[in-house]
């Protein structure tokens, strides 16, 4: 589904990604961990097409297409979803309106008829219940005045509405209390099917108590320096990154 080869990217003159390789197949859950500043969020942004970053080398193939050739919205419409670490507020635009446009744009891209208002509202009601999002939030402006937990739940809600092929969740767990964390993680797990894939970027292993990854990767200084299964996360939790970093230097 996703094949990243030797990906390099920089912001300004500063190279942040320095040769990432990653293969993600349908049905898989990947966790990317790593110390602060290792390039985790940049990797997510580059996949989504954020123009703040310039790709200098490497290739990314997504659903058989050259991802780097596509615009941000084309990537989104093809089924790439980014769960934001800091979801943005859009004053005056209701969540319902925003999602209706997004859902119908993506349907249009796939050559499907747009949903009617009635169909859309039904879908929204069911989905928000599924991810335990207070349905009142959907009539409020996008993320405006939402608590930290509500914002993150709202990301999962949008993911559920858009039903992506590949979801990249950028530190969706940061700033969440344990209940919110459980809800978010359960949402992600529920949405997981053999046809789609998830990349979870996280700082803490505690999210991985709820989301069981098939692979855990450690990103350090813009490269994946180690990959393992879920036991790696536990080891990292206990022993930190130092042993890996030292190993990497040798």
């Amino acid at each position: 589904m996703l094949s990243v080869k030797n990906l390099h990217a920089k912001v300004g003159d500063k190279e942040i990604l320095r040769g990432i390789n990653l293969e993600v197949r349908a049905g898989e859950v990947h966790a990317i961990m790593g110390p602060n500043g290792s390039g985790k969020s940049t990797f997510a942004s580059v996949l989504a097409g954020n123009e703040k970053f310039e790709v200098t080398e490497g290739t990314v193939e997504f659903m058989g297409k050259n991802l780097l050739d596509l615009s941000i919205e084309e990537r989104a419409c093809m089924g790439l979803f980014l769960g934001f670490q800091y979801p943005v507020e859009i004053p005056g635009v209701t969540m319902a309106n925003f999602m209706k446009m997004a859902v119908n744009e993506q349907r249009k891209f796939r050559g499907e008829e747009p949903l009617t208002a009635g169909e859309f509202l039904r879908m929204m009601r069911e989905t928000s219940a599924g991810v335990e999002l207070d349905s009142k939030l959907t009539s409020r402006a996008v993320n405006e005045g939402f608590s930290g937990g509500e914002k993150k739940k709202n990301e999962i809600f949008q993911m559920a509405m858009l039903d992506p092929k590949l979801a990249v969740l950028d530190e969706t767990d940061s700033g969440l209390d344990i209940d919110a964390l459980r809800i978010v993680a359960t949402g992600v797990t529920k949405l997981h099917t053999p046809e789609n894939a998830t990349i979870v970027i996280t700082h803490y292993q505690r999210l991985l108590d709820y989301i069981v990854p098939d692979y855990v990767h450690v990103l350090y200084k813009g490269q994946i320096i180690y990959s393992g299964d879920k036991s790696l996360a536990l080891k990292l939790e206990k022993e930190g990154y130092d042993w890996l970093i030292n190993e990497h230097k040798e």
Partner: peptide
């Protein structure tokens, strides 16, 4: 804001229209 809208599948043009209408709501 634009990146957020684009990432959900909206073109920049649609995103601007949406944001401006929200502002003027």
């Amino acid at each position: 804001q634009l990146f957020y809208c684009n990432q959900r599948g909206l073109s920049t043009e649609d995103a601007v229209g949406l944001i401006v209408n929200g502002y003027a709501r």
